[in-house]
Design a protein around this nucleic acid. Structure first.
Length: 417
RNA sequence: GUGGGUGUAGCUCAAGGGUAGAGCGCUGGUCUGUGGCUCCAGAGGUUGCGGGUUCAAAACCCGUCACUCACCCCA
Protein backbone atom coordinates (compact mmCIF):
# COMPACT_ATOMS: atom_id res chain seq x y z
CA UNK A 1 0.00 0.00 0.00
CA UNK A 2 1.22 3.46 -0.80
CA UNK A 3 1.15 5.59 2.30
CA UNK A 4 0.74 9.35 2.51
CA UNK A 5 3.91 11.39 2.88
CA UNK A 6 5.11 11.97 6.41
CA UNK A 7 3.73 15.11 7.98
CA UNK A 8 0.76 15.62 5.64
CA UNK A 9 -2.89 14.96 6.35
CA UNK A 10 -6.03 13.85 4.57
CA UNK A 11 -9.01 15.96 5.56
CA UNK A 12 -11.88 13.51 5.50
CA UNK A 13 -15.54 14.39 4.92
CA UNK A 14 -16.34 14.11 8.63
CA UNK A 15 -13.91 16.94 9.38
CA UNK A 16 -14.53 19.20 6.44
CA UNK A 17 -17.08 21.36 8.27
CA UNK A 18 -14.28 22.43 10.61
CA UNK A 19 -12.39 23.76 7.62
CA UNK A 20 -15.43 25.47 6.14
CA UNK A 21 -16.00 27.13 9.49
CA UNK A 22 -12.46 28.49 9.76
CA UNK A 23 -12.18 29.45 6.09
CA UNK A 24 -15.53 31.21 5.99
CA UNK A 25 -14.64 33.17 9.11
CA UNK A 26 -11.37 34.17 7.45
CA UNK A 27 -13.04 35.32 4.21
CA UNK A 28 -15.80 37.15 6.06
CA UNK A 29 -13.54 38.94 8.55
CA UNK A 30 -10.83 39.89 6.05
CA UNK A 31 -13.36 41.23 3.58
CA UNK A 32 -15.20 43.16 6.26
CA UNK A 33 -11.91 44.95 6.99
CA UNK A 34 -11.52 45.81 3.32
CA UNK A 35 -8.95 43.16 2.40
CA UNK A 36 -9.10 41.50 -1.03
CA UNK A 37 -8.13 37.92 -1.66
CA UNK A 38 -4.99 37.13 -3.64
CA UNK A 39 -3.90 33.70 -4.85
CA UNK A 40 -0.26 33.22 -5.66
CA UNK A 41 1.50 30.09 -6.93
CA UNK A 42 2.50 27.47 -4.39
CA UNK A 43 6.05 27.41 -5.70
CA UNK A 44 8.44 30.19 -6.52
CA UNK A 45 12.01 30.85 -7.48
CA UNK A 46 14.05 29.74 -4.47
CA UNK A 47 15.89 33.04 -4.24
CA UNK A 48 12.62 34.82 -3.38
CA UNK A 49 12.51 33.05 -0.02
CA UNK A 50 16.23 33.21 0.60
CA UNK A 51 16.21 36.97 0.12
CA UNK A 52 13.05 37.72 2.10
CA UNK A 53 13.09 35.23 4.96
CA UNK A 54 16.86 35.38 5.36
CA UNK A 55 19.60 32.93 4.45
CA UNK A 56 20.59 32.33 8.06
CA UNK A 57 17.13 31.29 9.26
CA UNK A 58 16.15 27.72 10.04
CA UNK A 59 13.42 27.86 7.42
CA UNK A 60 15.87 28.56 4.63
CA UNK A 61 18.74 26.52 6.00
CA UNK A 62 16.95 23.25 6.55
CA UNK A 63 13.20 23.36 6.14
CA UNK A 64 12.45 24.23 2.53
CA UNK A 65 11.19 21.83 -0.11
CA UNK A 66 13.60 22.85 -2.84
CA UNK A 67 14.07 21.08 -6.16
CA UNK A 68 15.47 21.85 -9.59
CA UNK A 69 13.11 22.60 -12.45
CA UNK A 70 13.85 20.87 -15.75
CA UNK A 71 15.99 23.76 -16.92
CA UNK A 72 17.93 23.76 -13.67
CA UNK A 73 16.18 26.71 -12.03
CA UNK A 74 15.88 26.15 -8.31
CA UNK A 75 12.24 26.10 -7.22
CA UNK A 76 10.82 25.99 -3.71
CA UNK A 77 7.40 25.13 -2.34
CA UNK A 78 6.42 28.23 -0.41
CA UNK A 79 7.21 27.94 3.31
CA UNK A 80 5.14 31.03 4.15
CA UNK A 81 2.91 33.52 2.40
CA UNK A 82 4.34 37.01 2.78
CA UNK A 83 7.22 36.64 0.33
CA UNK A 84 4.94 35.48 -2.48
CA UNK A 85 2.34 38.16 -1.87
CA UNK A 86 4.96 40.89 -1.80
CA UNK A 87 6.53 39.51 -4.97
CA UNK A 88 3.14 39.53 -6.69
CA UNK A 89 2.46 43.01 -5.35
CA UNK A 90 5.64 44.36 -6.88
CA UNK A 91 5.41 42.40 -10.11
CA UNK A 92 1.80 43.44 -10.80
CA UNK A 93 2.36 47.06 -9.69
CA UNK A 94 -0.44 46.88 -7.16
CA UNK A 95 0.84 49.96 -5.38
CA UNK A 96 -0.85 51.89 -8.18
CA UNK A 97 -4.14 50.13 -7.52
CA UNK A 98 -5.75 51.59 -4.39
CA UNK A 99 -8.06 48.59 -4.02
CA UNK A 100 -5.18 46.15 -3.93
CA UNK A 101 -3.01 47.36 -1.10
CA UNK A 102 -4.78 45.25 1.49
CA UNK A 103 -4.52 41.60 0.57
CA UNK A 104 -5.34 38.30 2.21
CA UNK A 105 -4.67 34.69 1.33
CA UNK A 106 -5.63 31.22 2.47
CA UNK A 107 -3.63 28.23 1.36
CA UNK A 108 -1.07 25.51 2.00
CA UNK A 109 2.52 26.13 3.06
CA UNK A 110 5.35 23.59 3.15
CA UNK A 111 8.19 23.09 5.59
CA UNK A 112 10.35 20.02 5.96
CA UNK A 113 10.26 19.74 9.76
CA UNK A 114 9.75 16.75 12.04
CA UNK A 115 6.01 16.58 12.52
CA UNK A 116 4.54 16.92 15.99
CA UNK A 117 1.33 18.10 17.62
CA UNK A 118 0.16 21.14 15.67
CA UNK A 119 2.99 21.00 13.17
CA UNK A 120 2.89 19.49 9.72
CA UNK A 121 4.94 19.50 6.56
CA UNK A 122 1.98 20.76 4.61
CA UNK A 123 -0.06 23.16 6.71
CA UNK A 124 -2.46 25.97 5.95
CA UNK A 125 -2.32 29.62 6.74
CA UNK A 126 -4.75 32.49 6.60
CA UNK A 127 -2.74 35.67 6.31
CA UNK A 128 -3.14 39.33 5.47
CA UNK A 129 -0.72 41.94 4.17
CA UNK A 130 -1.33 45.69 4.26
CA UNK A 131 1.20 47.40 2.09
CA UNK A 132 2.04 51.03 1.46
CA UNK A 133 1.45 52.85 4.72
CA UNK A 134 3.85 53.47 7.62
CA UNK A 135 1.01 54.58 9.89
CA UNK A 136 0.63 52.85 13.25
CA UNK A 137 -3.09 52.86 12.48
CA UNK A 138 -2.42 50.11 9.98
CA UNK A 139 -0.64 48.01 12.62
CA UNK A 140 -3.67 48.46 14.84
CA UNK A 141 -6.06 47.53 12.06
CA UNK A 142 -4.16 44.36 11.29
CA UNK A 143 -3.89 43.31 14.93
CA UNK A 144 -7.57 44.07 15.38
CA UNK A 145 -8.44 41.78 12.49
CA UNK A 146 -6.22 39.08 13.92
CA UNK A 147 -7.88 39.36 17.30
CA UNK A 148 -11.45 39.58 15.96
CA UNK A 149 -10.90 36.47 13.89
CA UNK A 150 -10.23 34.45 17.02
CA UNK A 151 -13.04 36.11 18.98
CA UNK A 152 -15.54 35.45 16.24
CA UNK A 153 -14.67 31.78 16.49
CA UNK A 154 -14.99 31.94 20.30
CA UNK A 155 -11.56 30.45 20.86
CA UNK A 156 -10.60 30.54 24.53
CA UNK A 157 -7.30 30.73 26.34
CA UNK A 158 -5.63 33.21 24.01
CA UNK A 159 -2.91 35.72 24.82
CA UNK A 160 -1.76 38.52 22.53
CA UNK A 161 1.83 39.59 23.03
CA UNK A 162 3.33 42.62 21.35
CA UNK A 163 6.78 44.09 21.04
CA UNK A 164 8.79 46.43 18.86
CA UNK A 165 11.98 45.21 17.22
CA UNK A 166 12.89 48.64 15.94
CA UNK A 167 14.31 49.25 12.51
CA UNK A 168 17.27 47.20 11.37
CA UNK A 169 19.99 49.62 12.53
CA UNK A 170 18.42 49.85 15.98
CA UNK A 171 18.07 46.11 16.17
CA UNK A 172 21.70 45.65 15.13
CA UNK A 173 22.86 47.98 17.90
CA UNK A 174 20.77 46.07 20.37
CA UNK A 175 22.07 42.75 19.09
CA UNK A 176 25.66 43.91 19.61
CA UNK A 177 24.88 45.11 23.12
CA UNK A 178 23.07 41.89 23.90
CA UNK A 179 25.95 39.79 22.70
CA UNK A 180 28.31 41.92 24.79
CA UNK A 181 26.16 41.15 27.79
CA UNK A 182 25.86 37.43 27.06
CA UNK A 183 29.47 36.53 26.32
CA UNK A 184 30.75 37.10 29.89
CA UNK A 185 27.85 35.12 31.39
CA UNK A 186 27.71 32.41 28.77
CA UNK A 187 28.74 29.77 31.31
CA UNK A 188 25.35 30.25 32.95
CA UNK A 189 23.41 29.62 29.73
CA UNK A 190 22.05 26.34 28.46
CA UNK A 191 23.84 24.56 25.64
CA UNK A 192 21.33 25.75 23.09
CA UNK A 193 21.78 29.36 24.06
CA UNK A 194 25.56 29.13 24.07
CA UNK A 195 25.29 28.05 20.47
CA UNK A 196 22.56 30.42 19.29
CA UNK A 197 23.86 33.52 21.04
CA UNK A 198 26.11 33.77 18.01
CA UNK A 199 23.83 32.42 15.30
CA UNK A 200 20.50 33.86 16.44
CA UNK A 201 21.26 36.25 19.28
CA UNK A 202 17.75 37.55 19.90
CA UNK A 203 16.46 34.01 20.34
CA UNK A 204 18.29 33.73 23.64
CA UNK A 205 15.74 36.18 25.02
CA UNK A 206 12.80 33.81 24.78
CA UNK A 207 14.59 30.64 25.89
CA UNK A 208 12.33 28.72 28.24
CA UNK A 209 15.10 27.15 30.32
CA UNK A 210 14.78 28.66 33.85
CA UNK A 211 18.51 29.10 34.33
CA UNK A 212 18.70 31.15 31.14
CA UNK A 213 15.81 33.22 32.35
CA UNK A 214 17.58 34.13 35.57
CA UNK A 215 20.90 34.63 33.82
CA UNK A 216 19.34 37.09 31.40
CA UNK A 217 17.05 38.82 33.88
CA UNK A 218 19.14 42.00 33.85
CA UNK A 219 19.67 42.01 30.11
CA UNK A 220 19.43 45.40 28.32
CA UNK A 221 15.96 45.85 26.84
CA UNK A 222 15.35 46.42 23.20
CA UNK A 223 13.08 49.35 23.96
CA UNK A 224 15.99 51.44 25.20
CA UNK A 225 17.60 51.14 21.78
CA UNK A 226 14.59 52.43 19.88
CA UNK A 227 14.81 55.80 18.19
CA UNK A 228 12.17 58.31 19.18
CA UNK A 229 10.29 57.69 15.94
CA UNK A 230 10.23 53.91 16.47
CA UNK A 231 9.28 54.42 20.07
CA UNK A 232 6.49 56.86 19.17
CA UNK A 233 5.22 54.46 16.57
CA UNK A 234 5.04 51.67 19.10
CA UNK A 235 3.33 53.88 21.69
CA UNK A 236 0.65 54.80 19.17
CA UNK A 237 0.06 51.15 18.38
CA UNK A 238 -0.39 50.38 22.06
CA UNK A 239 -2.74 53.32 22.55
CA UNK A 240 -4.80 52.18 19.59
CA UNK A 241 -5.11 48.68 21.01
CA UNK A 242 -6.26 50.19 24.31
CA UNK A 243 -8.79 52.32 22.46
CA UNK A 244 -10.22 49.27 20.72
CA UNK A 245 -10.26 47.23 23.91
CA UNK A 246 -7.92 44.62 22.51
CA UNK A 247 -6.17 43.00 25.48
CA UNK A 248 -2.43 42.60 25.01
CA UNK A 249 0.67 41.88 27.02
CA UNK A 250 3.91 43.74 26.44
CA UNK A 251 6.71 41.26 25.96
CA UNK A 252 10.13 42.80 25.47
CA UNK A 253 11.51 39.35 24.82
CA UNK A 254 9.19 38.54 21.93
CA UNK A 255 11.27 38.01 18.79
CA UNK A 256 10.34 36.66 15.41
CA UNK A 257 12.19 34.13 13.35
CA UNK A 258 12.05 35.82 9.99
CA UNK A 259 14.60 38.44 9.04
CA UNK A 260 12.19 40.84 7.39
CA UNK A 261 10.34 41.95 10.49
CA UNK A 262 10.84 45.47 11.80
CA UNK A 263 9.21 47.60 14.47
CA UNK A 264 5.87 46.15 15.57
CA UNK A 265 5.75 42.40 16.11
CA UNK A 266 3.03 40.35 17.75
CA UNK A 267 2.06 36.80 18.49
CA UNK A 268 -1.09 35.10 19.69
CA UNK A 269 -0.67 31.93 21.71
CA UNK A 270 -3.29 29.47 22.88
CA UNK A 271 -2.49 27.41 25.94
CA UNK A 272 -4.71 24.49 25.05
CA UNK A 273 -2.44 23.82 22.07
CA UNK A 274 0.55 21.97 23.51
CA UNK A 275 4.17 22.75 22.80
CA UNK A 276 3.53 24.50 19.49
CA UNK A 277 1.22 27.08 21.00
CA UNK A 278 1.57 29.98 18.56
CA UNK A 279 -1.71 30.18 16.69
CA UNK A 280 -1.07 33.43 14.84
CA UNK A 281 1.75 35.92 14.52
CA UNK A 282 2.98 38.80 12.45
CA UNK A 283 4.50 42.22 12.32
CA UNK A 284 5.83 45.05 10.24
CA UNK A 285 8.26 44.53 7.39
CA UNK A 286 9.14 48.03 6.24
CA UNK A 287 12.26 47.06 4.31
CA UNK A 288 11.00 43.98 2.56
CA UNK A 289 9.69 45.48 -0.66
CA UNK A 290 12.99 47.21 -1.26
CA UNK A 291 14.85 43.97 -0.57
CA UNK A 292 12.78 42.28 -3.24
CA UNK A 293 13.39 45.00 -5.80
CA UNK A 294 10.25 47.03 -5.32
CA UNK A 295 9.86 50.70 -4.63
CA UNK A 296 10.49 51.22 -0.91
CA UNK A 297 7.11 50.76 0.76
CA UNK A 298 6.28 49.72 4.28
CA UNK A 299 4.02 46.80 5.10
CA UNK A 300 2.48 44.88 7.95
CA UNK A 301 0.77 41.53 8.12
CA UNK A 302 0.08 38.36 10.01
CA UNK A 303 -0.34 34.64 9.42
CA UNK A 304 -2.62 32.26 11.27
CA UNK A 305 -2.13 28.48 11.37
CA UNK A 306 -5.44 26.96 10.37
CA UNK A 307 -4.69 23.44 11.63
CA UNK A 308 -4.06 24.95 15.04
CA UNK A 309 -7.24 27.02 14.85
CA UNK A 310 -9.26 23.99 13.89
CA UNK A 311 -7.85 21.91 16.72
CA UNK A 312 -9.22 24.35 19.31
CA UNK A 313 -12.48 25.27 17.57
CA UNK A 314 -15.39 25.06 20.02
CA UNK A 315 -18.27 22.80 19.05
CA UNK A 316 -20.72 25.72 19.20
CA UNK A 317 -19.26 27.61 16.22
CA UNK A 318 -18.95 24.71 13.79
CA UNK A 319 -21.23 25.33 10.83
CA UNK A 320 -24.21 22.96 10.79
CA UNK A 321 -24.57 20.70 7.76
CA UNK A 322 -27.01 21.70 5.05
CA UNK A 323 -30.32 19.87 5.52
CA UNK A 324 -30.53 16.81 3.32
CA UNK A 325 -33.70 15.57 1.65
CA UNK A 326 -33.79 11.84 0.98
CA UNK A 327 -35.92 10.50 -1.84
CA UNK A 328 -37.29 7.00 -1.26
CA UNK A 329 -38.57 5.85 -4.63
CA UNK A 330 -39.49 2.16 -4.73
CA UNK A 331 -41.69 -0.18 -6.68
CA UNK A 332 -42.33 -0.24 -10.41
CA UNK A 333 -43.38 3.40 -10.85
CA UNK A 334 -42.08 4.78 -7.62
CA UNK A 335 -38.47 4.27 -8.62
CA UNK A 336 -38.88 6.27 -11.82
CA UNK A 337 -40.95 8.96 -10.21
CA UNK A 338 -38.42 9.19 -7.40
CA UNK A 339 -35.66 9.75 -9.93
CA UNK A 340 -37.61 12.68 -11.40
CA UNK A 341 -38.29 14.22 -8.00
CA UNK A 342 -34.63 13.84 -7.05
CA UNK A 343 -33.59 15.61 -10.24
CA UNK A 344 -36.11 18.40 -9.68
CA UNK A 345 -34.96 18.95 -6.09
CA UNK A 346 -31.35 19.19 -7.16
CA UNK A 347 -32.22 21.53 -10.01
CA UNK A 348 -33.78 23.78 -7.39
CA UNK A 349 -30.61 23.88 -5.38
CA UNK A 350 -31.85 21.60 -2.63
CA UNK A 351 -29.38 19.06 -1.28
CA UNK A 352 -31.01 15.76 -2.10
CA UNK A 353 -29.87 12.18 -2.28
CA UNK A 354 -31.05 8.60 -2.42
CA UNK A 355 -29.61 5.11 -2.19
CA UNK A 356 -30.15 3.21 -5.42
CA UNK A 357 -29.38 -0.08 -3.68
CA UNK A 358 -32.45 0.22 -1.48
CA UNK A 359 -35.53 -1.37 -2.98
CA UNK A 360 -38.02 -1.43 -0.13
CA UNK A 361 -39.40 1.34 2.03
CA UNK A 362 -37.67 -0.19 5.03
CA UNK A 363 -34.23 -0.19 3.50
CA UNK A 364 -34.80 3.28 2.10
CA UNK A 365 -35.66 4.68 5.51
CA UNK A 366 -32.62 3.05 6.99
CA UNK A 367 -30.48 4.63 4.29
CA UNK A 368 -32.15 7.98 4.90
CA UNK A 369 -31.31 7.66 8.57
CA UNK A 370 -27.71 6.79 7.90
CA UNK A 371 -27.23 9.66 5.51
CA UNK A 372 -28.59 11.98 8.17
CA UNK A 373 -31.58 13.17 6.15
CA UNK A 374 -33.87 15.64 7.87
CA UNK A 375 -36.74 15.02 5.44
CA UNK A 376 -37.68 12.03 3.32
CA UNK A 377 -39.94 11.93 0.28
CA UNK A 378 -41.73 8.58 0.15
CA UNK A 379 -42.77 7.55 -3.34
CA UNK A 380 -44.15 4.04 -3.80
CA UNK A 381 -46.55 2.76 -6.40
CA UNK A 382 -49.54 3.79 -4.25
CA UNK A 383 -48.32 7.38 -4.09
CA UNK A 384 -47.71 7.46 -7.84
CA UNK A 385 -51.26 6.24 -8.35
CA UNK A 386 -52.66 9.11 -6.27
CA UNK A 387 -50.17 11.71 -7.46
CA UNK A 388 -49.42 12.44 -3.81
CA UNK A 389 -45.98 11.88 -2.30
CA UNK A 390 -45.48 11.44 1.43
CA UNK A 391 -43.21 13.95 3.16
CA UNK A 392 -41.74 12.47 6.33
CA UNK A 393 -39.96 14.48 9.00
CA UNK A 394 -37.22 12.14 10.17
CA UNK A 395 -36.92 13.42 13.69
CA UNK A 396 -40.60 13.90 14.55
CA UNK A 397 -41.83 11.04 12.33
CA UNK A 398 -44.70 13.27 11.21
CA UNK A 399 -45.93 12.67 7.70
CA UNK A 400 -48.06 14.64 5.27
CA UNK A 401 -49.19 14.30 1.68
CA UNK A 402 -47.91 16.60 -1.05
CA UNK A 403 -48.79 16.66 -4.75
CA UNK A 404 -45.75 15.16 -6.47
CA UNK A 405 -45.34 18.15 -8.79
CA UNK A 406 -45.35 20.55 -5.86
CA UNK A 407 -42.54 18.83 -3.94
CA UNK A 408 -39.60 21.00 -5.10
CA UNK A 409 -41.35 24.32 -4.57
CA UNK A 410 -42.79 23.33 -1.23
CA UNK A 411 -39.44 22.14 0.09
CA UNK A 412 -37.65 25.16 -1.30
CA UNK A 413 -39.79 27.58 0.71
CA UNK A 414 -39.87 25.34 3.74
CA UNK A 415 -36.10 24.79 3.94
CA UNK A 416 -35.32 28.46 3.51
CA UNK A 417 -37.54 29.52 6.39
C1' G B 1 18.88 16.26 12.69
C1' U B 2 18.32 14.29 18.26
C1' G B 3 15.48 11.75 22.19
C1' G B 4 11.03 9.16 24.49
C1' G B 5 6.37 6.40 23.69
C1' U B 6 3.34 3.20 20.59
C1' G B 7 2.41 -0.48 16.38
C1' U B 8 -2.99 -6.76 17.35
C1' A B 9 -10.08 -6.73 13.13
C1' G B 10 -12.55 -0.64 9.65
C1' C B 11 -12.10 2.17 14.88
C1' U B 12 -10.86 1.98 20.42
C1' C B 13 -8.24 -1.53 22.98
C1' A B 14 -7.42 -6.80 25.72
C1' A B 15 -4.39 -11.17 25.75
C1' G B 16 3.25 -10.52 29.19
C1' G B 17 5.79 -17.87 26.15
C1' G B 18 0.90 -22.59 25.20
C1' U B 19 -5.88 -22.67 20.16
C1' A B 20 -5.72 -14.41 18.68
C1' G B 21 -10.37 -11.83 21.86
C1' A B 22 -14.07 -7.80 23.41
C1' G B 23 -16.80 -3.27 22.59
C1' C B 24 -18.22 -0.11 18.70
C1' G B 25 -18.85 -0.20 13.41
C1' C B 26 -20.15 -3.28 8.98
C1' U B 27 -23.55 -7.25 6.39
C1' G B 28 -27.95 -10.06 6.96
C1' G B 29 -32.19 -11.76 9.82
C1' U B 30 -35.99 -10.75 13.63
C1' C B 31 -39.63 -6.87 10.47
C1' U B 32 -42.40 -8.67 2.39
C1' G B 33 -45.02 -0.27 2.93
C1' U B 34 -42.17 2.94 7.85
C1' G B 35 -35.51 4.27 10.06
C1' G B 36 -32.82 4.81 15.07
C1' C B 37 -33.87 0.47 19.95
C1' U B 38 -33.75 -4.93 21.25
C1' C B 39 -32.32 -9.89 20.25
C1' C B 40 -29.84 -13.50 16.85
C1' A B 41 -26.36 -14.79 13.13
C1' G B 42 -22.27 -13.60 9.84
C1' A B 43 -18.04 -11.41 7.48
C1' G B 44 -13.48 -9.36 8.73
C1' G B 45 -6.17 -10.83 11.31
C1' U B 46 0.64 -13.31 7.70
C1' U B 47 -0.41 -9.42 15.55
C1' G B 48 3.80 -3.09 10.86
C1' C B 49 7.94 -5.65 8.22
C1' G B 50 12.63 -8.78 8.39
C1' G B 51 15.68 -11.82 11.16
C1' G B 52 17.00 -14.37 15.89
C1' U B 53 16.07 -17.28 20.72
C1' U B 54 12.56 -21.47 21.90
C1' C B 55 9.41 -27.84 21.42
C1' A B 56 6.27 -23.35 21.10
C1' A B 57 6.61 -15.91 20.01
C1' A B 58 1.49 -11.04 19.40
C1' A B 59 4.64 -11.41 23.85
C1' C B 60 11.69 -12.09 24.71
C1' C B 61 16.28 -10.15 21.63
C1' C B 62 18.33 -7.44 17.17
C1' G B 63 17.32 -4.61 12.93
C1' U B 64 13.98 -1.77 10.03
C1' C B 65 9.67 1.11 8.79
C1' A B 66 5.49 3.85 10.32
C1' C B 67 2.74 6.69 13.75
C1' U B 68 3.05 9.84 17.96
C1' C B 69 5.02 13.29 21.59
C1' A B 70 9.09 16.39 22.85
C1' C B 71 13.84 19.18 21.64
C1' C B 72 15.54 22.64 17.72
C1' C B 73 12.41 26.00 15.21
C1' C B 74 7.83 27.78 13.93
C1' A B 75 1.63 29.05 12.21
Amino acid sequence: MIHRIRGVKDVLPDDISLWYTAEQAAHRLAQSYGFKEIRTPMFEDTSLFVRSIGGETDIVEKEMYTFPDRDGTSLTLRPEGTASVVRAFIENRLLNTPTSRKLYYIGPMFRHERPQAGRFRQFHQFGVESIGSPSPMIDIEVISLLWRFFSSLQIDGLALEVNSLGVSTERQQFKDALLGFLVPISANLCGNCQRRMHSNTLRVLDCKVPSCRTATAEVPTLSSFLSSSSSDHFQQVLEGLDLLNIPYVLNHRLVRGLDYYSRTTFEVTCHSLGAQNAIGAGGRYDGLLETLGGRPSPGVGFAIGLERVISVLPESVILPPTPLVYVAGFGQNGQQSGMCVLEALRANGIMADTDFQSSTLKTHLRSADRLGATLTIILGDDECQNGQAILRNMSSKQQEFLPIDAVPDTLKTRLSS
